[in-house]
Design a protein around this nucleic acid. Structure first.
Lengths: 201, 201
DNA sequence: AAAAAATAAAAACAGATGTTCGCTATTTTA
DNA sequence: TAAAATAGCGAACATCTGTTTTTATTTTTT
């Protein structure tokens, strides 16, 4: 990718970030200091050929720039800066979930009853709503008027909600009238102190 | 918000999700089974008045639906469905980080040396690159040709990288020539089995 | 140095797109 | 029940927007 191409991409990316929709060809021309739309179109065609952006032909403001997301870095060779492209194993797009969130929600974890599962106080757990859950899966449940995160366990002795911490006792579901499977655990997310990126607004 | 308004929003949201750009008024009309663009415009104006969507007037495909993100649910009253609006404490937008990722990257955790900090094998840790780190902070380090996630500890005895697991020994930094602070921990993210939403692509 | 490719301009064109107007039917509110 | 708001249609209009064509200049490649 040439410098010039890079500049086009940057402009389009920041336009989309600022406006929520992509720029028209004339807006790109203006932004790049050009006075002809033809020049812009040629560049866009070339960028599209290279796969650096996607266009749905003839559609107004239909430019899409493929989101790479945040790099996932694996093996790192000694002496090589961690940013080195050769170490990037892939990219993680956190926003995919936001977009296709089919009723998912976060619960903020209160207490350490799932400590042995590496889920601790203050963590956010992403729950996928579902009325059923498999044996051994971790999920969110409503029992006796409270919502709790536990492992679902069902055997000959009955159904239990299992904590993952010696200090807590299994909850015998049979002893309560009020029981509901809310959903099951899909993700655990923990923000460390001073991390402002994910503050729920 | 009326049912009808809800349907408009849903259609527009899914169109944007599918295409990457918002629908034209005629496309909305078609999608909603209407034959006049005027009807659509009226509805869009009303939705915009209510703040349910944003339009930058006269701009083709300029509809934006404010992203709320994923709801964070806190206290939940007995008997109330978890989706109840009154329980939503806020919304978490995961995509904010993607956008403003200033060099952040994920490391996939290998091993259980930070188990006591509730960071386990297979977790993804988000690292903010930085050449410095405070005493007691968890960070990523390169030492002796390997990258490791540890707690940084500095006292009268020297500098150590502390594991959070009895089975591992502190690493005395002074004994190695090759040492570098890569960055510090900002987030821990764990995908549970069968969670396809965050597969690094 | 000559040929090829990239960059750019200006103008014209066609189609896509948002807006407006007049009119009617239905639903909701007072 | 009467008035007001909502929903809808169809047509006409103005603008926005992507495309194409022609020509010229600059840069890169051979």
């Amino acid at each position: 990718m040439t410098d010039r191409q890079q500049k086009f991409i940057k402009f389009i990316e920041s336009f989309i970030r600022d406006n929520g929709y992509s720029p028209s060809i004339r807006e790109i021309a203006k932004g790049m200091g050009l006075s002809s739309t033809a020049s812009v179109k040629k560049m866009l065609d070339r960028l599209a050929d290279s796969g650096l952006l996607n266009r749905s032909g003839n559609i107004a403001r239909g430019i899409e720039i493929p989101e790479k997301g945040i790099p996932v870095i694996g093996r790192i060779k000694a002496g090589v800066p961690v940013e080195a492209a050769e170490n990037v194993e892939g990219y993680m797009k956190l926003d995919r979930l936001t977009i296709r969130s089919g009723g998912h929600f976060f619960l903020k974890v209160d207490g350490d009853s799932m400590k042995e599962e590496a889920i601790v106080d203050g963590d956010y757990v992403l729950i996928k709503p579902s009325p059923v859950i498999s044996n051994g899966q971790i999920g969110a449940f409503r029992i006796n008027g409270e919502v709790t995160l536990k492992t679902f366990r069902q055997n000959a002795e009955g159904v239990y909600l299992m904590p993952a911490n010696e200090e807590f006792e299994p909850i015998p579901v049979g002893e309560y009238d009020d029981f509901e499977v809310i959903g099951h655990l899909k993700m655990v997310l923990r923000m460390t102190e001073g991390s402002d990126a994910f503050e729920p607004a």
